[in-house]
Simulated scan of single mutants.
Amino acid sequence: MEFFDFGTIFFLVAAIVIFFQLRNVLGRRTGSERPPFDPYSARSGKKNEDATASENVVSLPRRKGGAEAESVYAAIDSFAAPGTDLNKGLRAIRDADSSFEPKSFVEGAKMAYEMIVMAYADGDRRTLKNLLSREVYDGFVAAIADRESRSEKIQSSFVGIDKAEIVNAEMKGSEAHVTLRVVSELISATRDGGGEVIDGDPETVAEVKDVWTFARDTRSRDPNWKLVATEADD
């Protein structure tokens, strides 16, 4: 019995020593990871790793200049000519939101555009609420309710987006605003309560031109952008 107790203690001490040695060699993680989600701005795996690492490091602010500053704006300068109002606006947004990248934003905005167009046609208020500002949401819902009161339904098929380009970008206080001109193709027809077509054509692909503005508060931890203004592009 004495030999058993001594052996047990010996192996327990050895296990503890090995554990601490392994921890010193391999290190340990602290904090918690927050998986980012942003339908309008791409988050690469490399950025996720950098974000996790930054939680464990205290960085002192430093002035950006020369080549370092140019590398920060490289993606913007390749997207909009330096010196233009659009370039300046995109740079201002990049200064306020280090995750902002115009090409990724456009790709996300195109996805949001299709989701909003189809949600409006289907009367999907829940989806619209997540993608629209309060003012725009109220307008869309009012139009849906008016349509429903007449027992009308929209039959739509989204064909695709031919063109989507940023035409304006600016900071309004802490809010970033980006305006896009979108040219899409859509098959759409409105039917009355009896199923008769009263607007559009269920067999024809129509070109639709819109100018939409998306915005987000750069101070918020919420990375999502919302549609804050719409207008037809004649």
Score class of each variant (00 low, 15 high):
K129Y: 13
D146K: 15
V197C: 06
E107Y: 00
S157I: 07
L186W: 09
S184Q: 12
V136N: 04
M115T: 05
E135V: 02
I161F: 02
G195E: 07
D199N: 15
D201R: 13
E107H: 12
A121H: 11
R94M: 08
K172F: 01
M111W: 08
F140G: 00
G173P: 04
S133D: 12
K110V: 01
G160Y: 07
S188I: 04
D146H: 07
P102Y: 03
E148T: 00
V106P: 05
S184N: 07
R134D: 12
S98W: 00
D146T: 12
A145L: 15
A96N: 01
S156Q: 13
G193Y: 06
T204R: 15
E170I: 02
E114S: 14
A143R: 14
V197D: 13
R91V: 03
D146S: 13
G193I: 08
S149P: 01
G194Y: 08
S133Q: 10
E101F: 01
L90F: 00
D122R: 15
A121M: 11
V159L: 13
T190K: 13
R150A: 10
S184M: 13
V141T: 08
G123D: 04
L128D: 00
K110E: 07
I154G: 01
Y113N: 13
D97C: 03
D97L: 05
A169D: 04
G160P: 07
M171P: 02
V167S: 06
T127L: 12
M118N: 03
E196T: 10
T204C: 05
V106C: 07
K110C: 09
L132F: 04
A145I: 07
K172I: 01
S188V: 11
L180P: 02
R150V: 00
L180T: 06
S156V: 06
R91M: 12
I161Y: 02
G89M: 01
E114N: 10
K153L: 11
A92L: 11
V159D: 05
P102W: 03
G108A: 08
F105M: 06
S156L: 05
P102F: 00
E203P: 05
I144M: 15
K153T: 08
G89L: 00
L90A: 02
A164P: 02
V159A: 06
S99W: 05
A121I: 02
E148Y: 03
A176P: 01
K172E: 03
E152G: 04
I166V: 14
E185L: 12
G160W: 13
I198M: 11
I198F: 13
S99Y: 03
V141S: 10
L90K: 03
D162W: 10
E207M: 14
G194K: 14
V117A: 14
E107Q: 11
A164W: 02
G139W: 10
E207D: 10
E152F: 13
N168D: 07
S151Q: 14
L180I: 07
